[in-house]
């Protein structure tokens, strides 16, 4: 087995009496795309800053390719894109990337290639002050790709981006991971990272409450599927009586069931024949899955 790019053991970080990160442990392997999900204040940024070595944890340990966080060896292998970064408006994209290449000890000759990769070849000679939000974010990502890092940390990289820019952004992330780098990106919504990551880590109140693939999390959550049956006539009471669901208005009935009961319910519905006008099947949304995991924690934590 290959060595973990990032391994965190029992990490705890407190600010005064408040515990920002509470006993978090996980590993990230090369080429893995992991999403760190949690609402504002769940401890995501604290965790990322600890990985970078800016914060010293009270307990636990972090190792970046076997090195201590913040050590020169670790800094050389980690790339980072902070949540809100505003580059000097007076400088051009090329100048900023050249600067960071020099800081990281890389040849500035790779800058044009990086700009092309993020689609900023033409804008590279313009001042950053003229860039749109999506372009600035892509410049930030280009900065994070300098020198082929082994671990790429992206703190809420897509917040505030339009859907098309977000799509483009994840395409780039996929390329980076395909090259063998581990990517850890944080986001406050599970729906933002759908299908874009191999693994989902959910944080709530500083604790890691879930760590698995999205499909497994869906299964583990065992959230009910919602069937909404619309009657052809004002027959909701009769439908409700025969199917055992709940009447929501004079024409519609809602039935909640597990995934494996779905077909049986659908068969029962179709047996009602002309009584039914329409059926709507709603799978639990990613936000429901997220709420399920963070909600469980709230009960345990109190």
């Amino acid at each position: 087995m290959t060595e973990s790019v990032l391994s965190i053991k029992n990490l705890t970080k407190r600010f005064g009496r408040q515990t920002a990160v509470d006993g978090v442990s996980f590993h990230i392997e090369p080429g893995e795309r992991a999403a760190l999900i949690g609402h504002n204040g769940a401890g995501k940024t604290t965790l990322i800053k600890s990985i970078l070595g800016f914060l010293t944890p009270e307990e636990g340990s972090i190792s970046v390719l076997g090195n201590a966080p913040g050590s020169n060896a670790a800094r050389r292998s980690v790339a980072y894109l902070p949540e809100a970064v505003a580059f000097q408006k007076a400088l051009t994209g090329v100048e900023i990337l050249t600067f960071f290449s020099r800081l990281k000890g890389e040849d500035p000759k790779t800058v044009p290639g990086l700009l092309e990769k993020v689609g900023l070849s033409e804008a590279g000679r313009r001042r950053v002050g003229t860039y749109s939000k999506g372009m600035r974010q892509r410049l930030g990502l280009a900065q994070a790709l300098i020198g082929e890092p082994s671990l790429v940390l992206l703190d809420e990289p897509t917040s505030g981006l339009d859907p098309v820019s977000r799509q483009d952004f994840y395409m780039l992330v996929e390329e980076v991971a395909a090259r063998g780098a581990a990517v850890l990106l944080s986001s406050h919504a599970l729906s933002e990272v759908e299908a874009k990551t191999d693994r989902v880590l959910i944080m709530a109140h500083g604790k890691l409450v879930a760590d698995d693939t999205l499909a497994s999390l869906r299964r583990a959550a065992r959230l009910p599927i919602r069937l909404r049956v619309q009657g052809a006539d004002v027959a909701a009471d009769e439908i409700a009586a025969r199917l055992g669901g709940m009447r929501v208005n004079c024409r519609s009935v809602e039935i909640f069931c597990d995934a494996d009961e779905k077909l049986a319910h659908l068969a029962a519905i179709s047996a009602l024949g002309s009584l039914v006008e329409d059926v709507e099947v709603t799978l639990p949304s990613l936000d429901d899955v997220y709420r399920h995991f963070t909600g469980v924690d709230a009960k345990k934590g109190s």
Binding site: N72, V85, A86, L103
Partner: peptide
Amino acid sequence: DRGTALLIFSSPI
């Protein structure tokens, strides 16, 4: 203020 300190100090300087 601009957030660039995070970037600079996470690089090997």
